[in-house]
């Protein structure tokens, strides 16, 4: 059987997730390249095989495209669609691609505000619109959530794709993993955590390490936002503070910010 052709692409992001994807032991790396062909990967390769298009991407068909980053420019949309056409399977890699990520924080500002903040001297020199997730433009077959992603979960998704499994990321909240780690709940320590509505899979990384969940993996499919708000209120969070909790990663989530652009 021919090895599946795999490629990585990035849009607006910090490239941290691609780094995480390749943060492998030498054995893992060898195993990985023995089962897949990485054909495009700017982070890790200098050469691309075959002809290039005007975005600098290849033109051959690919089996799996891992796409990192949110979409912030009209021109990105065309490139994104081109990748979709080339790929049998598209995987959103990391929070930016999956839910707009930190980039989507700017959507709470006016266009003028965020342009000035980013390019103080010449705010209108570059293209920049509302930050959106890739799934708002193209069909996404699987996601690897998180900011940054978890290397183990990346490998998991790769294996799922190889055996012909629909890649499964948990659809239950972070609390499940937090309890399995036998953590005391951070609400009892005066912190406010989005664990009860956030998709698990990170191993409750933040509450297990002295912090609280920011929701970087996005919401579960059926979050009870009203109850989450009641709880934060009961634990003395006022309306504004509550809102800023949700703003961090969940700007593109209709359950929290329904009437958004």
């Amino acid at each position: 059987m021919a090895k599946p052709r795999v490629a990585f692409f990035e849009f607006s992001d910090c490239e941290g997730c691609q780094l995480c994807a390749l943060d492998l032991t030498p054995e893992q790396l060898l195993d990985l390249v023995s089962v897949v062909d990485i054909v495009e990967f700017r982070e890790a390769m200098t050469e691309k095989a075959g002809a290039l298009d005007d975005h600098g991407d290849g033109t051959d068909s690919i089996d799996v495209a891992f796409i990192e980053g949110s979409i912030n420019r009209e021109s990105d949309v065309a490139r994104l669609k081109r990748i979709r056409e080339r790929a049998s399977i598209v995987v959103a890699l990391g929070a930016c691609a999956h839910i707009g990520g930190i980039n989507a924080l700017k959507n709470f500002q006016s266009e003028e505000e965020y342009r000035k903040a980013a390019y103080p001297t010449d705010p209108y020199k570059y293209e920049s619109t509302t930050a959106k997730a890739i799934g708002e433009f193209i069909k996404v077959d699987a996601v690897i959530p998180g900011c940054p992603i978890d290397t183990g979960e990346f490998l998991h998704v790769v294996k799922d794709l190889l055996v012909g499994h629909k890649p499964q990321v948990p659809d239950y909240p972070v609390c499940v993993e937090c309890k399995l780690k036998e953590n005391g709940c951070v609400y009892e320590k005066g912190m406010h955590c989005l664990g009860p509505v956030t998709r698990a899979g990170c191993g409750a990384r933040c509450p297990s390490n002295g912090g609280y969940c920011y929701g970087c993996r996005g919401l579960i499919s059926k979050p009870n936002i009203a109850s989450q708000q009641d709880i934060m209120q009961k634990y003395n969070l006022n309306e504004d503070e509550m809102l800023s909790k949700f703003k961090m990663f969940l700007q593109r989530s209709k359950e929290v910010f329904p009437d958004d652009k």
Partner: peptide, 30 residues
């Protein structure tokens, strides 16, 4: 029920819950 977050904390911590899921996990070299 309307307050419930479906967060699973109760069933993870209960000494008499014994339901399970079954999953296959393959090595990276397949």
């Amino acid at each position: 029920g309307s307050k419930c977050l479906s967060c699973g904390s109760c069933i993870m911590t209960c000494p008499t819950c014994y339901c399970f899921d079954v999953r296959d996990e393959v090595a990276l070299n397949m």
